[in-house]
Design a binder for these strands. Structure first.
Lengths: 238, 238
DNA sequence: ATTATCTATAGATCTATAGATAATGC
DNA sequence: ATTATCTATAGATCTATAGATAATGC
């Protein structure tokens, strides 16, 4: 369960800041709002990853964002607002990463293995961010907590679709809906596991090895993603 | 990733408070120290689960524990000390739970399924506590963070042993060491998943169903824990 | 005398805002 | 005039401790 922060953090690209819509501001110019909020979010995410939400002060955020504390409060109404912007922006990035990954992986036969590989690589790249969500979701007001959970569910939903499609195409054995649902949650979480057990796993496995082991593990249940590999498994059985 | 707290929390039995040894105190009488620290830990764990570590004040803890704020600081040197006592006490309880569970489950053939079942039930019972560790480990001073991680690893180690034993006994196919290690981590984490995705899972699955699906998933890779079930799988393949 | 406990508070923050100032556009 | 920004600080905490008090044992 443990969570430790070791890697240097790459920046968020932080595309649309769509959660921005939910938060009122004193400032009229919408582009300005977006731009400043991006500054604020970028600064905050680094600080939160580094010291955690509660140990980061609004002054530090303002300073790192290059605005005064007074200005900061023209763009958000509270420190929690900033956390929400941060969480939302992370989810946007993860989701984009996952969607891209799915785009790249369309092979029919080994499709699932490809999807897994791309997803695990996203988790690897976004390690710090995913960890932050695990640790600080709870500090959000419950209204926004729900939104973060919904985001989480949407990402799991992507895997449900992939599994359903592969099942329909005959690339996976017939799995009932709930088996698919649980498998999709497992995939999400085993990706996250690389982030929240990084303190152990990254000392003993390289990400590629991790992906190989996990792929084998996941394809285990699912009867493996093709007739060919299924055949080789029977051999092993003998 | 999301974490929401809904269930009512049962108390910790909080056996030895072994982490107690690591923390200095002003008070000479060792039994008294143990007793007061138990009061403090019991009060704190409830408050932390309810409001989180940072939003709980030392005064609230003192009050709930039935001691004055002055006395509180005779037994710990800082608020973080309390968090450490809490985390340690939770691990002790989880580990005891897991060990008990292993005791109860010794059938040769379906051994793994039994172990999984007992472990998942422990996670179910200790849901709130496990979630707390996920969320607040980070707030510990790094020296104690390491200790929490070591505890985590010890629990995973139990599963490594079980898997190794079953492999040696021929109840599982031949799995290499690293496959076993990753499988053990997966088992730990899929148990925790029930706690940190409870907001979704417990609305759609009862714990027994969850256990069934996860058992099927896990036994998938491992070639299933007996010849019999392996045979039935071949049938499905056809 | 020693040990445990309590009350009262020092001292250090931290969030959020009020009110002044600068910049922009009519 | 309106919009954006800044400085200075009110007001509210919160952790941790100092020093007084009570209880226990020699």
């Amino acid at each position: 369960m443990p969570q430790v922060n070791t890697n240097p953090t790459p920046g968020l690209t932080n595309p649309n800041l769509s959660g921005s819509r939910d938060i009122p501001t004193q400032v009229k110019n919408p582009e300005l709002v977006l731009r400043r909020r991006r500054q604020i979010t970028d600064a905050a995410v680094k600080l939160f990853i580094d010291k955690g939400f509660h140990k980061t002060t609004t002054r530090q955020i303002a300073r790192a964002a290059g605005v005064s504390i007074g200005s900061l409060y023209e763009y958000v109404a509270s420190k929690e607002d900033i956390l929400y912007l941060v969480c939302d922006s992370i989810h946007e990035e993860v989701e984009r990463g996952v969607a891209d990954a799915l785009g790249r992986a369309i092979g029919g036969r080994e499709a699932l293995a490809e999807v897994l590989r791309e997803y695990f690589l996203v988790c690897h790249r976004m390690s710090d961010f995913i960890l932050l969500i695990y640790q600080e979701t709870r500090s959000l007001p419950s209204q926004w907590q729900k939104r973060v959970l919904a985001n989480e569910l949407r990402i799991t939903g992507i895997f449900i679709e992939v599994l359903a499609r592969l099942t329909a195409a005959g690339d996976l054995p017939n799995l009932d809906e709930r088996t698919i649902e649980i498998a999709a949650h497992n995939i999400s979480v085993l990706g996250h596991m690389w982030t929240f057990r990084r303190w152990f796993l990254s000392r003993h496995y390289r990400i590629d090895d991790y992906i190989r082991y996990q792929t084998a593990f996941i394809l285990g249940l699912l009867g493996q993603s093709g007739r060919e590999s299924r055949r080789s498994r029977h051999k092993e059985d003998k």
